[in-house]
Amino acid sequence: MPTKFNVYTGEPEGGSTPAAAQLGLEPPRFCSDCGRRMIVQVRPDGWSAKCSRHGELDSKDLETRR
Score class of each variant (00 low, 15 high):
H54Y: 10
T17P: 11
R37Y: 06
A49Q: 02
A19I: 13
H54S: 06
K60Q: 08
R65Q: 10
L25P: 00
M1T: 05
N6P: 05
G35Y: 05
A19G: 03
E56A: 14
R66D: 05
Q41P: 00
G55L: 04
C51R: 00
R65M: 13
C51G: 04
G14D: 08
G35Q: 03
C31W: 07
C51H: 03
C34K: 03
H54I: 04
G55C: 07
V7I: 13
K50W: 10
R43K: 14
C31N: 06
G55R: 02
C31L: 09
G46E: 00
D58H: 06
C51L: 00
E13H: 12
E26I: 13
K60Y: 01
C31G: 05
L25C: 04
R65Y: 12
M38K: 02
M1F: 01
C34V: 10
Q41K: 12
R65W: 09
S48I: 14
R36G: 11
P27K: 03
D45N: 08
L23I: 08
P2D: 08
G55W: 06
E26R: 15
D61K: 01
E13I: 14
G15H: 05
V40W: 02
T9Q: 05
L23M: 10
K4D: 04
A49V: 08
D61S: 13
A19N: 04
P2S: 11
T64N: 03
P44S: 12
V40H: 02
A20F: 05
V40E: 03
P12D: 04
P27Q: 04
A19M: 10
P27I: 03
T17Q: 01
P2A: 13
V7T: 12
N6K: 04
Q41C: 10
S32V: 13
N6T: 01
Q22E: 12
F30Y: 15
V42I: 13
R29A: 15
S52I: 14
I39C: 05
G24A: 07
V7Q: 12
A21P: 01
H54A: 07
T9S: 09
A21W: 07
V42N: 00
L23Y: 10
T9I: 06
R37F: 10
R53Q: 15
P44R: 12
P44Y: 10
P12V: 07
M38D: 03
G46N: 00
T64M: 07
G10I: 01
L25W: 13
A21K: 03
R66M: 08
M1L: 06
R37E: 14
D58K: 08
L23V: 05
C51D: 04
R66S: 10
E26Y: 13
A49L: 09
E26N: 10
L23H: 07
C31P: 03
T3K: 14
G55A: 06
P18E: 02
